[in-house]
Simulated scan of single mutants.
Amino acid sequence: MKSLSVFASALVALTLLANPLAAKSDEHKKPAFNASWPKGRVTGFPIPRFVSLRSERANMRVGPSTDYPTKWVYSARGLPMEITEEYGNWRRVRDQDGATGWMLAPLLSSKRTAVVGPWLDRPAALNERPRPKARMIARLSPKVRLDILDCDGNWCRVSLRDRHLSGFIDQTLLWGVYPGEVID
């Protein structure tokens, strides 16, 4: 577990070093995180940040201890969550509907996922290419879960969970990715 943490720290450091260079060469691709971004008290990773549920079943608690009552029980592996605070082995998280509470860190994964914007009142286009006028592959209803393959700051290449379908979606239509965030 410690070697995974060291690897993740190195990966974050490399990303922070590489993204400013990418931003200089292509101004529309701005990194979501930079050196001035607040860091978690425990991990040193950026706060806030998106993660996903690792576990098939995860309890969100009122406070950072098993002594606190369960607020919600999630049974959707891969659901994106936003970490907003760290306390020991606990992470304060927020879900796509705005519910907040505390989860044990081992229940969370750094694997990036997203949902089609819960705020949308119509389906979002999954395109063949990262362009507004590209051929549409599918219409995705709000809250459909997606695996993030990469994002360029404007478009994300995604795959539909448990299906053999992938394409591009406008990054602003996703919850689980920050505006302008570049994911490689």
Results as ranks from 00 to 15, higher is better:
residue 139 R to P: 05
residue 77 R to L: 05
residue 79 L to W: 03
residue 89 N to L: 14
residue 114 A to I: 01
residue 174 L to Y: 02
residue 155 W to C: 05
residue 91 R to A: 12
residue 44 G to W: 02
residue 54 R to I: 00
residue 156 C to R: 05
residue 34 N to G: 09
residue 157 R to E: 07
residue 20 P to Y: 01
residue 176 G to D: 01
residue 178 Y to R: 12
residue 41 R to V: 14
residue 9 S to Y: 05
residue 98 G to W: 04
residue 181 E to K: 02
residue 39 K to V: 09
residue 98 G to F: 03
residue 158 V to Y: 08
residue 48 P to F: 05
residue 101 G to D: 14
residue 90 W to L: 05
residue 117 G to P: 00
residue 86 E to Q: 01
residue 2 K to G: 09
residue 70 T to S: 13
residue 3 S to T: 11
residue 81 M to P: 02
residue 118 P to Q: 11
residue 72 W to Q: 13
residue 56 E to I: 08
residue 70 T to P: 13
residue 101 G to N: 09
residue 143 K to L: 12
residue 1 M to N: 08
residue 140 L to Q: 04
residue 2 K to L: 14
residue 169 I to N: 03
residue 52 S to N: 11
residue 109 S to W: 07
residue 53 L to A: 10
residue 149 L to Q: 10
residue 19 N to S: 08
residue 105 A to V: 12
residue 164 H to K: 11
residue 137 I to C: 00
residue 125 A to E: 09
residue 56 E to V: 14
residue 90 W to Q: 10
residue 56 E to A: 13
residue 180 G to Y: 02
residue 116 V to Y: 00
residue 48 P to K: 08
residue 39 K to A: 11
residue 41 R to D: 10
residue 17 L to T: 08
residue 10 A to T: 10
residue 174 L to I: 02
residue 10 A to W: 15
residue 161 R to V: 09
residue 10 A to M: 14
residue 58 A to N: 03
residue 156 C to E: 02
residue 128 E to A: 15
residue 25 S to N: 14
residue 140 L to N: 09
residue 75 S to M: 14
residue 65 S to L: 02
residue 12 V to P: 00
residue 16 L to H: 04
residue 40 G to W: 06
residue 70 T to W: 07
residue 1 M to G: 13
residue 91 R to Q: 06
residue 109 S to K: 05
residue 102 W to P: 07
residue 128 E to N: 14
residue 105 A to T: 12
residue 59 N to T: 13
residue 169 I to P: 05
residue 48 P to M: 11
residue 71 K to F: 14
